[in-house]
Design a protein around this nucleic acid. Structure first.
Lengths: 235, 235
DNA sequence: GTCTATAACGAGATAGAC
DNA sequence: GTCTATCTCGTTATAGAC
């Protein structure tokens, strides 16, 4: 067990060093994101900042695109965790209150991490195409919103609006994919509200609200309550 | 008058050449936008593509940022013209039909010009800050939407929702700025709907709807009708 | 096996002398 | 307006330390 012990501690130390260096690389890369943008993220600059040589980074990330993917997943996870935490803190509240709590957590995270928000919800990075591995992290906020609406539906607190005939096929397809237990008109409204939420956040973050909306917090709060109404959530 | 004549034609030819070359520069720059993104837009590459020398471009655009600004204004103007044309074609229709016509024109233009859309509504370009000269072009779509809602209001076709007290000051400020003849609750809803419209378009364009919304046109159409309802427009 | 460093490639950008 | 010398980049091959 002596050998096992030393082997374990040795392996543990190596693994610890590896995760630490991986974290340092991502941290330096996030600094690059803020300074130069995702399009100009460069492995050499990251290595320089860490006092390493560029080829050494390839032990941790097989390519620049893999580093970008890791940053994207981290950003989605950080946003998702913030939203889940806000949702958990409002666990006993009404669906409408939980909805606004999640939306405000999204906005708060975006204002606190503007460059990471731009990475995941801004313009695509030229030449980069996100792999499917980003999907679970990207889905976290959406799943929260679905869960809130599902609870409201089970409590009989939902009122939907009729769908046009041309949309019924697609609405049923989305419903089967996302939330088979909810009515199609609710799922359709929910997907739209999900996109519209990020429209509000993006306009504030990217400067479109400059000289238009000044006092943004009450504006946003009211807008997401109206969004919830559109999905059928009543107070 | 001989001298005046030659002077005039010379000046006319020179001015014509200048606008032609300016247009060619912007055209090549738009190609760069699509290939490398706005962050990597470089005067040298544009010059290379045109067979010019980089220093020659400075006769047309004093800096890279000025070229960017010109591209941004052109994009806003192109989008605004497309929206205005769609609105004009629906001049005799109901406000709700004009609303959806403008929204669909925005989406159509975005799908046809994804890189220019990313330039104006995507992540900000690092190190670039848009000057106030972009504001009039950027406002065109918003002014259209305000006009449609104003017409509906004058026809008595608008129903608003009460505002929370915390928002009344900001709502009155926005109303004074944007449309003093409309009720504050309508102006507030309109600004929110404006941002939400671009949330829908951006999600489709930037891939967030991949594997989520497949048949996007009826989805979008229904979503903007619901947006209009949120502003108070009834059919 | 795990890691870092050296060196090199091919492509492209850049600054400055001319 | 042209040329050149010197930068950058992502990536790979290789050699050696632990």
């Amino acid at each position: 067990m002596n050998t096992a012990n030393t082997a374990n501690t040795a392996k543990g130390a190596r693994a610890r060093a590896r995760t630490e260096i991986t974290a340092a690389i991502k941290e330096a890369a996030r600094g690059q994101l803020a300074a130069e943008g995702a399009a100009k993220l460069s492995l050499r600059a990251v290595a320089r900042e860490l006092g390493m040589v560029s080829s050494a980074l390839y032990r941790y990330f097989p390519s620049r695109d893999d580093l970008l993917t890791a940053l994207i997943i981290d950003a989605y996870d950080s946003l998702g965790a913030a939203a889940e935490q806000a949702h958990h803190a409002a666990a006993d509240a009404t669906p409408l209150e939980r909805w606004t709590a999640v939306c405000e957590a999204v906005r708060g995270w975006a204002l606190a991490h503007p460059h990471e928000y731009a990475l995941i919800y801004g313009s695509p990075v030229p030449g980069y195409s996100a792999p499917q591995t980003t999907v679970p992290a990207a889905a976290r906020v959406g799943l929260l919103l679905i869960g809130i609406v599902r609870d409201a539906h089970e409590q009989g607190r939902l009122t939907g609006h009729a769908l046009p005939a041309e949309l019924s096929r697609e609405a049923e397809r989305m419903t089967a994919d996302l939330a088979p237990d909810l009515p199609p008109e609710i799922v359709t409204a929910l997907v739209a509200a999900w996109a519209q939420l990020y429209g509000l956040v993006g306009f504030e973050l990217f400067g479109q609200f400059n000289r238009v909306v000044e006092d943004r917090e009450p504006f946003f709060r009211h807008a997401v309550v109206r969004l919830a109404h559109g999905v059928g959530l009543e107070p």
